[in-house]
């Protein structure tokens, strides 16, 4: 899976719910927006190894 976290690209194997992916990465689902293959998804959506995932932190200060 190609997974970009806050602009940094990474590759790893994962198949399951977005929520589980975020838990694995130690990210709270409430502070990020997740796009799969360019579309915003919910944490209940499922992803697999062929997906391009983008995780962007959106809860910021200022």
């Amino acid at each position: 899976m190609q997974c970009t976290i806050n602009g940094k690209k990474d590759y790893f194997t994962f198949s399951g719910q977005v929520k589980e992916l975020l838990q694995k990465l130690g990210i709270n689902e409430q502070i990020v927006i997740v796009k799969v293959n360019g579309k915003i998804v919910t944490e209940l959506d499922k992803v697999n190894d062929s997906d391009i995932v983008e995780i962007q932190k959106v809860i910021l200060g200022g």
Partner: peptide, 10 residues
């Protein structure tokens, strides 16, 4: 500007 973070945020 949704993703611009204040440097003092933490």
């Amino acid at each position: 500007s949704v993703f611009v973070e204040c440097p003092y945020v933490n």
